[in-house]
Design a protein around this nucleic acid. Structure first.
Lengths: 170, 170
DNA sequence: TATTGTTATACTCTATAACTATA
DNA sequence: TATAGTTATAGAGTATAACAATA
């Protein structure tokens, strides 16, 4: 975990490479493992997929609802896919399209009362799962990890596409 | 980043929940952002997908090659999918199936010379991308993050399936 | 009978591009 | 013309289950 660092600059670069690669593989595998667990439990417990859960989570924060375009930008997927997901959730009576008088090309997607109730249960379970999965770290370690990930994330070179002012505070 | 912790036990649990949830969202979003970047560059630079790259990375570490079953367990996907991926890589002459005299049901998948050369280039580029993406953290922070992720990962309750002794040291 | 690998099928998510209807 | 959303299509990855060949 803490090898002696060589003094030669080129070797140091090499060592640095391996540190980064090992870190990335661990970050990725940890994330995938947790995500798969949550995905599986959402399916088994609530018969819902992660993208559909995510869409409802977006709506939960916005009681007014969101247009398809807003959902597309927030979820960072193309419009056609949002249509599919909203279609499915609509079929299950979890969300609905509400027409806008001021622009008849557009809709506002909101949760139905059924959807709100269903989501409350899912969100509660979800939060408990996450808490359990994170329980290997104490409060201090969690804050430390949160901080380091923040540094890493904000240090990422923003890709070419800063077009749609993506909504992604975390 | 460091709010005062309430003393009431129930509130503390609540606060703890939110810490975990915020941590998880940050972990997930950071991981996805890096993964998407790498995925896109692998496609644009080398015309290869992440699962195919991963399969070749598995073979790279095992000069003797691996059977379909071993690949399936290491990549944690079902056998049918490994068949598909190996088929595609075989079509591009990057890997090959080598028959085993001792068990004619089974094969050993190895990289072709072409595949080995191609993978060397990909791996070099991949490592450099990772290094650049991680550059927001200094060496010490990277080790710290690596350590915390290790604690988190090993604290995860091992899922029910410890059947196939999954190969996943990271 | 059990095991290795393949095939067939289906589902979800994803992107691109053509299209409709409004603005 | 430009924009909001839909539809059509295609491709990748995934799982399940039935199947063939071999052990």
């Amino acid at each position: 975990m803490s090898e002696a660092l060589p003094l030669d600059l080129e070797n140091r670069l090499q060592a640095d490479d391996h540190t980064s690669l090992r870190l990335w593989l661990r970050l990725l595998s940890t994330s995938i493992r947790i995500e798969d667990t949550i995905r599986q439990r959402l399916r088994e417990g609530f018969g819902i997929t992660l993208p559909r859960f995510d869409l409802m989570a977006q709506l939960e924060r916005e009681p007014e609802g969101l247009t398809m375009g807003e959902l597309s930008r927030r979820m960072m997927v193309t419009g056609g896919n949002v249509t599919t997901i909203v279609d499915q959730l609509t079929k299950e009576d979890l969300v609905q399209r509400v027409t806008l008088p001021e622009d008849r090309r557009s809709y506002r997607v909101t949760m139905t009362p059924v959807g709100r109730a269903a989501f409350a249960g899912m969100a509660r379970a979800h939060e408990q799962w996450v808490k359990d999965l994170m329980a290997g770290l104490d409060e201090h370690q969690q804050h430390q990890l949160h901080h380091l990930l923040g540094v890493l994330k904000h240090g990422l070179v923003t890709p070419i596409s800063t077009q749609g002012q993506t909504h992604d505070p975390d």
